[in-house]
Amino acid sequence: MMIFSEALKEKIRSYLERYETKRSAILPVLHEIQKEFTYIDDEHILTLEKDFGLNRVHVREVVTFYSAYLTEKPKKFRILFCDSVSCHIEGTQKVMAKIEDFMSSYKKKEKELPFSLEGVPCLGVCGGAPAMFVNEDRYLNVSCDNVEAILKKYDH
């Protein structure tokens, strides 16, 4: 059984106290768990039920509703590429295809792929379109020319 750290437990308790019903605290509690473990799986949900009295069904409803909660261990580097209108006009499709190419080169070399690529809605920086996140780092004006260099910084 995966055990929550004392700091995490303390945080969860403080969220649970904050609301009238425990169920109301599920969102922030899940955020804390994802911060610590990078994803949320059955073990975490069952621990929440056992140690904190949150119904497992209620928790799972929330986890599966929001795609921002990950139910599987993510790759080391998550690329979130904006595929909304402004970035689309500025060439999201081409850059994403370039990233796919880059990622498939790992397969040819039989190396383990440290990246995952997802299209996400607007990142709120249309002025720097196309925009992307690699984990917590933000990149603006990403293009076919510079994207490979950016990604290579992460995997050397």
């Binding site: 069904v57 799972r60 409803e61």
Partner: peptide, 19 residues
């Protein structure tokens, strides 16, 4: 008993038990 929930979202949403 809280045994049933609505999992997933939109047109993929389904009723079910835990696992």
């Amino acid at each position: 008993t809280g045994g049933l929930g609505i999992f997933d979202r939109g047109d993929r949403a389904i009723i079910g038990t835990y696992g």
